[in-house]
Amino acid sequence: MANRVHRRVIVQDYGKAIYKASSKVSLLAVLEGCIEGYKSLHTQAGILQCNMSPSNLMVNEDVYNPSWCSFLIDLDLAIKEQWEESSGARGKAGTPAFTAIRVPLDEANHSFMHNLEPLFWVLFFLDMHSL
Rank of each mutant, 00 (worst) to 15 (best):
F71S: 06
D76E: 15
C69W: 04
F98N: 00
L72Y: 05
T43Y: 06
M58G: 05
W83S: 11
T43I: 04
A78R: 02
G37R: 09
L41D: 03
L57R: 05
G46P: 11
G94P: 01
G88C: 07
N60E: 01
W68E: 13
Q49V: 02
M52E: 05
D76Y: 02
N56E: 01
N56W: 02
E61K: 01
E61A: 12
V63E: 09
S70R: 07
S70K: 07
I79A: 12
G88Y: 03
M58P: 00
G88S: 06
S55M: 07
T43P: 00
V59M: 12
A100E: 03
S55Q: 11
C50V: 02
Q49H: 15
Q82N: 14
K80L: 15
A100Q: 05
V63S: 10
A97K: 15
I79H: 10
A78I: 04
L72P: 00
M58N: 03
P54D: 10
S67Y: 11
A93S: 14
S70D: 03
N65E: 08
L77T: 07
N60T: 04
D62C: 15
A100T: 02
G37T: 05
N56R: 05
G37I: 03
L57V: 11
E85G: 13
L48R: 12
Q49T: 01
